[in-house]
Design a protein around this nucleic acid. Structure first.
Lengths: 309, 309
DNA sequence: AAAATTCATATCTAATGGATATGGCAATGG
DNA sequence: CCATTGCCATATCCATTAGATATGAATTTT
């Protein structure tokens, strides 16, 4: 049985007239008669009653007509679905974010744009540390990830630079520096004697860049010993909670300022070398998934908007 | 696109290996490669990624695999449905009954047996006078009908005799004849002076046989003038209600005795010529419907049981 | 570096889908 | 009632194309 047979059968069943059906199918009557017979033979079911003036459907024929139509329709849908999938408008996508990346407008904008363009893609977000994301990308537990660390490049992954933003210092609002007007800036050197709270293990996120910035300013930051607390929940929110509790200060990306936490104040940093945070996008090298490609396109587009400024 | 393509695609998608898939399909590798390419070309979608060691599915390929499988399954179901329909196990059937026929056990038995054998057939029953059923059969508003009249034979219908049953007389329970023991029989002649209530117009049901029986017994029955009441609702129940109300007597088929109506008593009839009611089955001559044929078979089977007695 | 694995390409063969010609049968119409 | 017409079936032939064979190219394994 081939699709041709279904098409032929439907034509005849609709015309109830083999000759006319053949015409409609752009073929001659005899081969069409043959093929119809072939179907009946294969199904071992009489589908038509040959009458002197045309043919008519048997009960079985009527049943088959309905089903055959449905089958063809099903197939059409199959094609449509497949094409959508190939255009990356359908499928699954798991996006990794860190705890700080969603605060930069690029991230929600890109995600929103993608969702609108590809509503058939089922999208999941997963919050991980940058290095965790990298692992998950390799294990194919994740398809793309917004990361801040430099780690992960090479080894089967591609990391594209998206943008760079200045860091600001987050202070307890009781801190002397937080008493000044919000617009006042703070020099790095002024922070040399402060206790720093850093989130995540070395190599992750902004740990390194914080240290680097301080060292460029001529001092090594004093890291607050938080015991095991750096292990558990190394999320930006918990770090800022510690800042709010007065245990120390930390640097956060500019975009984090929109997070108004009780007892935390932000101040811009002045000076020749100001610490910066980068936002990057990681994915598997050579990932053929159209969905992933599509998503990356949307992120790049958004990144371009921010680069323009 | 042909079903062959779907089958080939599925084989390759399952093996992820063209050579092995070709083996499984009982063909050589090159033509399979070709056909796969043809599909991709026709869909204008890359379904596989050719790797050094086998192939792998793209997102689109995965989507198509699911759909292609579903399509084939759909088609299988289509075949199954069609075959069922051809065996008369599926479809629609409208059965006509008169108001008296359901009382004979043959009718419910046949219907029940058919229902059990062909549960996929949607069955409707319609209660009509015999002559109405005949009309409806001709208009294809009905497929088979249990009737009692002789009418309808010929003119494109076939009427098969099922069985014959004796008639009994239905009397008001206040009637003198009803005062005797239930087993007592009544001779026809004894009823010569009674008023008869007949249901339905002449030619319908037992109208004719009642008259005929009386005439054979040497008298013409006195027909009660019921005004317009014979026109409306010529159902057996209303006739018996009239009997119960004492307006007259009537003959009903033996099987009607199971209907215990307030104020109505039944007595068997004795004598050389006893009125009889026949039960027949009518259908369209040459109706090809397997469902109808199937139903008729079941009815005949039941009829044989009764004929045996 | 050689061998093996696997898919792609090129060419050829054979199966079969479809065309042409014709026959048979029933309905239609003088 | 016979001739005509309309349609489907059968028989034969041709052309397309699915599939076979042989070979090449690329990569992986040994």
């Amino acid at each position: 049985m081939e699709l041709r047979h279904l098409r032929y059968f439907i034509a005849v069943a609709e015309e109830l007239h083999i000759t006319r059906a053949a015409e409609r199918l752009g073929m001659q009557q005899p081969p069409l008669s043959q093929q119809i017979k072939t179907i009946e033979l294969e199904l071992d079911v009489q589908l038509f009653l040959r009458k002197a003036r045309g043919v008519e459907l048997t009960d079985a024929g009527r049943a088959f007509l309905e089903e055959a139509r449905a089958t063809l329709k099903h197939l059409d849908r199959a094609f449509e679905t497949t094409r959508r999938a190939s255009r990356g408008e359908q499928g699954r996508l798991c996006v990794g974010v860190t705890s700080t990346t969603p605060f930069h407008p690029l991230v929600p904008r890109a995600i929103r744009a993608f969702r609108e363009a590809c509503p058939m893609v089922s999208l999941t977000l997963e919050e991980c540390l940058s290095n965790e994301s990298v692992d998950r990308l390799r294990n194919e537990q994740m398809d793309v990830a917004f990361i801040r660390a430099n780690s992960g490049d090479g080894h089967g992954l591609v990391v594209t630079f998206l943008l760079e933003e200045l860091m600001v210092v987050a202070l307890p609002s009781a801190h002397i520096l937080a008493q000044s007007k919000p617009e006042t800036t703070v020099s790095l050197e002024r922070l040399a004697s402060e206790t720093f709270i850093l989130y995540g293990p070395p190599g992750t996120g902004m740990y390194d860049s914080t240290i680097a910035a301080c060292q460029a300013a001529g001092f090594s930051p004093r890291i607050g010993n938080l015991g095991a607390s750096t292990q558990l929940a190394p999320r930006i929110t918990s770090t800022l909670s510690l800042v709010g509790a007065g245990l120390g200060i930390t640097f956060v990306p500019w975009s984090l300022q929109r997070m108004n936490m009780e007892g935390v104040a932000y101040r811009a940093i002045k000076g020749p070398i100001r610490p910066k945070a980068t936002l990057k996008l990681a994915s598997r090298r050579g990932d053929q998934s159209a969905v992933v490609k599509q998503f990356i396109n949307f992120v790049r587009k958004e990144a371009k908007d921010f680069a323009a400024r």
